[in-house]
Design a protein around this nucleic acid. Sequence first.
DNA 1: GAACTCCCTGGAGTGCGCTCCAGGTCAAGG
DNA 2: CCTTGACCTGGAGCGCACTCCAGGGAGTTC
Lengths: 127, 127
Amino acid sequence: MTTSGLSIADAAERTGLSVDTLRYYERDGLMLAPVPRTSSGHRAYGPDELRWITMVTRLRSTGMPIRDVRRYAALVRAGEGNEAERLALLQAHRQVVLARLAEVQDHLGAIDHKIGIYTDAVSSSAA
Amino acid sequence: MTTSGLSIADAAERTGLSVDTLRYYERDGLMLAPVPRTSSGHRAYGPDELRWITMVTRLRSTGMPIRDVRRYAALVRAGEGNEAERLALLQAHRQVVLARLAEVQDHLGAIDHKIGIYTDAVSSSAA
DNA sequence: GAACTCCCTGGAGTGCGCTCCAGGTCAAGG
DNA sequence: CCTTGACCTGGAGCGCACTCCAGGGAGTTC
């Protein structure tokens, strides 16, 4: 009486990833365990898988390389006892992201300045 | 009596790009004009080149693809009269960057939450 | 004038993260 | 039955942005 789970196409729609990417992530060791299969061998994504994919997406979308996501997945897969390592990995990532955000914001500020200049130029030439 | 300009190695150091990247940008049409040369054919980067490279770096570092930087360079190279187009390009980029920043910040918030959970777990296990 | 260093060019190679493809299986519909 | 459609696998291919390399000057140092 278990609900079998989402097809890969449905999981793709839910997560915003492509079907190919979902299979690629699994092949590449980013999942915590092989995705469950139906009797005919089709993947069936359950809530656990979807939640984990969401976490992977957060890490990827903040710029974490696949290889680091894989390391994080390995830690989680290993089970309890390595929380300090997981924490260290996430905190290191956090620092990288914050630095990157600051850099982008700084550069964007300079670009905004240039936008201001062009805005003046364009509006005065239209006058 | 013209100061000849910086060697490519010095320009690389100044801009934070690699020597190879500087040559690549020039080959790929990202510069406004061919970089001036010394009598022996070595590149000599002057203030104009360095300023432009700084702008390119800002665009690149905020995620603008090479191809769009090239389009922007082409507009600037074409001279006055297309300020509206330059402005449109920069504004479009700005929107993309802002959206990306918001997304990253959102995902980072979720990661921070997870960090909080692990911090609690680790500190209580140490207690 | 031999060695050294820095630079040149054209072109090949690399790492990343997907993305696509051929050839095959399986359950359901007509 | 036979087609259809979604999915399977292993592996090749791709776009991007560099990065590296071979082979060849040119100017300086001893």
